[in-house]
Amino acid sequence: MEKGRNLRSVNTDGGVNLQFKLLSAIGIIIIVSGHCYHGGMELAYNWFPPYSYNLALFVFISGYFYKTDYEENIGKYIWKRTKRLLIPAYLWNIFYGGMVAFLGLFGFTIGAKPDLYNLFVMPFVDGEAFQYNLGSWFVYPLFLVCIINVLFRKFLKLIHLDNEFIVLIVYLAIGMIGINTAIENPTVINGIVKLFVRTMFFLPCYEFGRFYKAVLEKKDTLNNVAYFAIIFAVQLILLTFCENLEYTPSSFTNFNNGFVIPYISSITAIAFWLRVSRLLVPAIGNSKLVRLIAD
């Protein structure tokens, strides 16, 4: 018990979870470096290929901070998520659509035509029409994950089955069905179907975070040698027997190892950086730079 109290005191400062701030900052750096051929840095990429877990990491972090109190006022929670995720994403999409239209006046064309469809419908079903903000596709399935999660949990509470194990099993089944759909019928992954399978894929990742917070975090006391030995042993098996651990959630393609391996590779990488973040917090502390990157 004393060990647990010391750990929490080290990893929090004024109500700020320093471990997850650092984890978020590391995730941001991995995302950026992954988009520029690793950016001249090495963050265990040979062991944990960035596209085998990078977006799952962010959804995991979102799930970690989910609170069951949200289920008491679902309308308020949906509005909060709308203000936090949906409205800013739409405003940026409109901004970049305007930029594309403006540059088109000078003969420079990129991306799709800035019309009502591409301004207001396309962000949900694809998210990459204007090119400049193609990374924002991630926001829309994340928004749906948040809404589906709170509604499903409210339903489970009403029938007295609100249990993290049930949520985990159901979400994993949904996620695997989504991946298998892309594997068996790749030609259907367009438009609204793409939004659905992206959302399905992220649901288990979101629950991984909530499950860790509610069930596993208090039991996460294994010594570092054993902890990392298990992670690297599992990862070595994956790297040895799997063709390529990386997949592409944006286009929902390249799931070459079936519908189970993507979740295993996500779990091992998240577990690795979760413990690394915990170990680094005492040295880094409440760093303004880390919080700037994370926020």
Rank of each mutant, 00 (worst) to 15 (best):
L156H: 11
K80D: 09
V59R: 02
A56Y: 04
L43W: 10
G34T: 04
Y66C: 01
H38D: 12
I159R: 04
I148A: 07
Y53F: 15
L57G: 06
I61A: 06
F120L: 14
N54F: 13
N54V: 14
K113D: 12
W137A: 03
I30Y: 02
G40C: 03
L85K: 05
K113C: 15
E42I: 07
V167Q: 08
V59W: 02
K113P: 05
Y140M: 01
P123D: 06
E128I: 07
I78T: 07
F102D: 02
G97A: 09
Y66A: 12
A56N: 07
N93R: 04
F106S: 14
F155D: 05
G63E: 00
Y45P: 00
V145F: 07
Y96E: 08
N73W: 09
G107A: 02
L55R: 07
V32H: 01
D115K: 03
V121P: 04
L85M: 09
M41I: 15
A89D: 01
A101M: 08
R153M: 12
I148F: 13
G135R: 02
L158D: 08
P49D: 03
N73P: 02
G104Q: 08
N73D: 15
L86A: 02
W92L: 12
L156M: 14
F143E: 06
L85I: 09
R153K: 14
Y45L: 01
L144D: 05
K83S: 08
R153Y: 09
V139C: 06
E71F: 06
F106E: 04
R81C: 09
I29S: 01
I147P: 00
F102T: 10
L57K: 10
F48W: 02
K76N: 12
M99L: 15
V121F: 04
Y77D: 00
E128K: 15
H38R: 14
E71Q: 11
F102S: 08
I159Y: 09
T109F: 06
L86V: 14
F138K: 03
Y117K: 00
H38C: 14
G40F: 10
W47R: 03
I110M: 14
G104P: 00
H38E: 15
V59Y: 02
N118L: 09
L85R: 04
I147S: 04
G135E: 04
N93S: 11
I61V: 13
A89I: 03
F58N: 06
W79S: 14
N149G: 08
D115M: 04
Y45S: 01
A56C: 07
S33Q: 11
H160R: 15
Y90I: 08
Y117S: 04
K76M: 08
F152P: 03
A89N: 01
D126T: 05
Y37T: 12
G98L: 00
V100S: 07
C146T: 10
M122L: 12
E42M: 10
T68S: 13
F130C: 04
L85P: 05
F152S: 13
W92D: 01
V167F: 00
L142R: 03
G111C: 05
F165P: 01
N93H: 13
I61H: 02
F138E: 07
G97Q: 08
G104L: 05
